[in-house]
Design a protein around this nucleic acid. Structure first.
Length: 333
DNA sequence: GATCCACAGGAAGGGTTGGGGG
DNA sequence: CCCCCAACCCTTCCTGTGGATC
């Protein structure tokens, strides 16, 4: 059934993006200075998960690179490269060799190399709110030939940690907001992916409808549900995807996302998650008290606060309220 | 509306780690 | 093989914030 599984992988960039025409035009216009070799504009993209931010950015920069000689574009996932050294190395990989950089020379050397690049280049910083050291952004913004496209769920998550001088400069940035996909748009996206990835007639419109419905505007989820549904059908030896396959596939897809997130936690972080999962819903104080009982050599409160924030970032927990009424809830759907 | 308490997260300092060079 | 250095993680200390309580 699956004759081109890559089309259903999370980082697949389609040959054409069918929706988001307004956003596409704004991004292209914002990148115009790159073509004219003028000073770059700052570009922000924000919107909910699965709204097509990453996909459209990668699509647009790929087009730019194809159509323009001497322009380099590069994608960096700040989630995987949240520390200063690893992030800067990834940025440099997009334009230059990195094998001659030694860790003991520090990050200044990497920044020097980035500053001396003499051709314009565009770097997408996806999940930009994950960058731990806000000084990195200031340094990257001062690089003459570099155009940054910053992607985050909420623009203010990136801007708030910055100092006032930088924030005021960035008020002039090109800011592109993405909304959730509508149901009809999701169905259309699923249809085009299914056409490219699956044997003809493997799935019909009403089943796509069910998947789109469950994904609630999130294209990334929708595509992973479709992928898992195709696998289910394959395992069963069926050549069409039925509602039963989808029913099985959705929890399986959600579980695999959750397990993947859990695998990235260290032992203490996992204990904090398990404590929260047992409690279901609890204040930071309660969580910490139970955590300390369960751990012979517990981390400090401050560190556990960092862990809790991490769980929220990984979608393993949700948080509500502020101050003393703050409550964390485990996510284990 | 003043006060209190729990919380978030920044800053600074110390211990640990890991890769390269002597 | 050990030392060096930068990066990284954790801790301690601290400030600012906002809901709860009287």
């Amino acid at each position: 059934m699956l004759h081109n599984a890559r089309v259903l992988s999370a980082d697949w960039v389609p040959r054409d993006v069918v929706h988001r025409n307004a956003e596409k035009n704004r991004l292209r216009n914002a990148l115009q200075p790159v073509l004219d070799d003028e000073p770059p504009e700052d570009i922000f993209i924000d919107g909910p998960s699965g709204a097509g931010k990453t996909c459209l950015s990668r699509f647009t920069t790929r087009k730019l690179e194809e159509q323009t000689f001497g322009v380099h574009t590069h994608y960096v996932d700040c989630w995987q490269h949240s520390t200063k050294a690893s992030l800067l190395m990834r940025v440099l990989e997009g334009v230059d060799t990195t094998h001659d950089i030694h860790p003991k020379e520090g990050t200044d050397k990497i920044l020097d190399r980035l500053s001396t690049v003499d051709e314009p280049y565009v770097t997408i910083l996806d999940e930009a709110d994950q960058i731990q050291d806000s000084g990195i952004l200031r340094q990257l913004w001062s690089i003459p030939k570099l155009t940054l496209i910053l992607i985050a769920n909420r623009e203010r998550d990136v801007l708030d940690p910055l100092d006032e001088r930088l924030r005021s400069r960035l008020r002039g940035a090109v800011s592109i907001h993405f909304d959730k996909y509508s149901h009809a748009e999701l169905v259309a996206i699923l249809k085009s992916r299914a056409d490219a990835a699956l044997e003809p007639q493997s799935i019909n419109e009403s089943e796509l409808d069910v998947i789109a419905d469950k994904a609630a505007g999130n294209a990334r989820d929708a595509i992973s549900y479709l992928r898992q549904s195709a696998r289910e059908a394959d395992w069963e030896g069926d050549d069409t995807i039925t509602r039963e396959h989808i029913q099985t596939a959705i929890p399986a897809a959600q579980d695999s996302i959750r397990r993947h997130s859990l695998s990235k936690l260290n032992d203490d972080q996992r204990v904090v998650y398990e404590v929260l999962d047992d409690l279901g819903c609890a204040s930071p104080k309660e969580i910490y008290e139970v955590y300390v009982e369960n751990q012979p050599d517990p981390r400090s409160k401050r560190t556990v606060r960092k862990y809790l924030k991490k769980l929220v970032n990984y979608n393993l927990a949700e948080v509500e309220g502020a101050g003393p009424s703050r409550v964390y809830t485990a996510v284990n759907s």
